[in-house]
C-alpha cells in the first residue's frame, strides 16, 4: 500500500512540476489556404440547430474562408493605433463601444457606452508582441488564428474593414450548407479532421503545453511531414468551422450580456465541435481558444 501511494504521489509530482512553456515556437506549416479569401453564401433555406429547423436567409453574404490570423489582426492593430481608433490603457488595447440596451434580465450585466478591452497585451498566451508603438506577430504564429481577442476586439476588426461578425444563423449556414450534417465536412469525425482535444495533431503536446492552435486551413487533405490531414472544408469551402478556436458571433440578445461563439475549440471533445453547439461568455472575455472570422 505504501509503495502504491509513493508511486502515485511521485507520478503526480513529476507531471505537475513540468513547467509550461507557453511561448514555445509552433511547427511551421503552410496550408496553402489564403486567409484573405472570401466566399459567397447564396440566399436560401437551410436546416438550423440540432433538430434541423428549416430556416431562410433571404440574402447572399460573403464570409471569410478562414479565421482571422495573427498577421491580419496585427495589421489592424497597427493601423487602428495609428489613426487613433484604438488606444492603449494600462495593459490593454481598448476601443469604444456604444453600449447595449439594458433590460435588467436575470444575471444580466449592463454594457454601457465606453471603452472596452480588445486584447490584453501582457498575457503570455497572446501571440503578438508590442514594443510600445507597433505590434508584431511572434515568429511561427503568423498564419494561426488570432486569439485572446474579446468580442469587442473581434467586432471592431470586422467593422474596420467594412464587414461585421456573422450572426449565429449566418455562421451555421456557412458551416453546414443545406443538408443536416453535424460537422462541416460530413457526418463523422476523425482525429485528422480537426484540431480538438487529444486529436494528436502536430501542435499538441500534453506533457508540455497541451493543445495549441493550428494554422488556418490546416485540415485540407494535405500531408505535413507525415501527418496526413483530411480535407475538412464546409460545403462552401470554409476551413476550421469545427475545432481550433471558438468563433465569436454578432448577435446581441435581449436581457443578456453574453455573446455567443460557435465551432468548438482545440480544448474540447468532438461532441462540442458539432455545428449547433453554442458557447458564450461576457463580451470582455479573452481566451487562447477563442477567435473569429467576418462576413460582409
Amino acid at each position: 500500500m505504501n509503495k502504491l501511494i509513493f508511486i502515485l504521489l511521485s507520478l503526480s509530482l513529476i507531471t505537475a512540476c513540468t513547467p509550461v512553456d507557453v511561448t514555445a515556437p509552433a511547427p511551421v506549416f503552410d496550408s496553402g489556404v489564403d486567409p484573405g479569401r472570401w466566399v459567397t453564401i447564396p440566399a436560401g433555406t437551410f436546416f438550423s440547430g440540432q433538430f434541423n429547423k428549416e430556416t431562410n436567409l433571404d440574402y447572399d453574404y460573403e464570409i471569410m474562408v478562414t479565421d482571422v490570423t495573427n498577421s491580419q489582426y496585427t495589421e489592424f492593430l497597427n493601423n487602428a493605433l495609428a489613426d487613433g481608433s484604438i488606444k492603449l490603457v494600462g495593459n490593454q488595447i481598448v476601443g469604444y463601444y456604444p453600449g447595449d440596451p439594458f433590460n435588467k434580465g436575470r444575471h444580466e450585466e449592463e454594457i454601457a457606452a465606453g471603452d472596452y478591452i480588445y486584447i490584453p497585451i501582457d498575457d503570455p498566451a497572446l501571440r503578438l508582441s508590442f514594443d510600445g508603438k507597433t505590434f508584431q506577430v511572434i515568429e511561427t504564429w503568423e498564419n494561426h488564428p488570432v486569439t485572446m481577442v474579446s468580442w469587442f476586439g473581434a467586432k471592431a476588426y470586422c467593422e474596420y474593414y467594412g464587414g461585421k461578425l456573422p450572426s449565429e444563423l449566418e455562421w451555421e449556414k456557412a458551416a453546414r450548407g443545406t443538408d443536416i450534417r453535424p460537422f462541416p465536412w460530413g457526418f463523422e469525425i476523425a482525429r485528422n479532421n480537426a484540431n480538438f482535444i487529444n486529436s494528436r495533431d502536430p501542435f499538441e503536446d500534453n506533457q508540455k503545453f497541451g493543445s495549441r492552435t493550428s494554422p488556418v486551413g490546416f485540415f485540407n487533405g494535405k500531408n505535413y511531414e507525415g501527418y496526413q490531414t483530411l480535407d475538412s472544408a464546409s460545403p462552401y469551402g470554409l476551413y476550421d468551422m469545427a475545432g481550433n478556436v471558438w468563433q465569436w458571433t454578432n448577435d446581441v440578445y435581449k436581457s443578456q450580456h453574453y455573446r455567443y461563439m460557435r465551432g468548438g475549440s482545440k480544448d474540447l471533445y468532438q461532441s462540442n465541435l458539432r455545428i449547433w453547439v453554442r458557447n458564450n461568455a461576457t463580451p470582455v472575455f479573452t481566451s487562447p481558444s477563442v477567435g473569429f472570422r467576418c462576413v460582409r
Binding site: T18, D123, A125, Q207, G210
Partner: peptide, 12 residues
C-alpha cells in the same frame, strides 16, 4: 491557474 498555463494541473 490562467487558461494558458493549465496543462500541468490538467495532467495531474
Amino acid at each position: 491557474v490562467e487558461e494558458s498555463s493549465q496543462q500541468p494541473i490538467i495532467n495531474t
